[in-house]
């Protein structure tokens, strides 16, 4: 009984700890292909408050988190460490690129937003 309770609690904690981000573009594409999902590539920086708001608040929103997990492989690239893959451009961070079959960009969200509005934008893309 104790073991079951522990496992349930552990599962809940894992879910609450946040979304898992891949940090390699090619691996993210491969995973997406295997799982029949699209890639959401977030281009951000640790010093950007809008990016941190997305990570600290919006991605912890249960509806947003569930939707992202269901439809996307998440890829996080850092403006200071990573170059954007060829064919993608940005004007500011955070920028969210949505990548479908054949590494084609199927959508883009510029800037962070409140959970409800971000979810609406996600649903408009997929």
């Amino acid at each position: 009984m104790k073991k079951t309770l522990f496992l349930i609690l552990f599962g809940i904690l894992l879910q609450a700890s946040g979304l898992q981000f891949e940090h390699n573009y090619k691996i993210a594409l491969q995973k997406a292909k295997k799982q029949n999902k699209e890639v959401m590539m977030m281009y951000s920086a640790s010093w950007c408050p809008e990016c941190n708001y997305m990570k600290d608040i919006v991605f912890k929103n249960s509806k947003v988190s569930r939707y992202l997990q269901k439809h996307f492989i998440l890829l996080g690239l850092d403006i200071q460490k990573d170059k954007l893959p060829k064919g993608f451009d940005y004007v500011g961070i955070p920028t969210f690129f949505f990548i479908g079959n054949g590494a084609k960009q199927i959508g883009k969200i510029i800037g962070g937003d409140k959970a409800s509005r971000f979810l609406k934008k996600l649903k408009a893309i997929k």
Binding site: P49, N52, Y53, D56, I57, K114
Partner: peptide, 8 residues
């Protein structure tokens, strides 16, 4: 400030 993001 209804619905305003006041994060940090």
């Amino acid at each position: 400030f209804k619905g305003t993001i006041l994060y940090k």
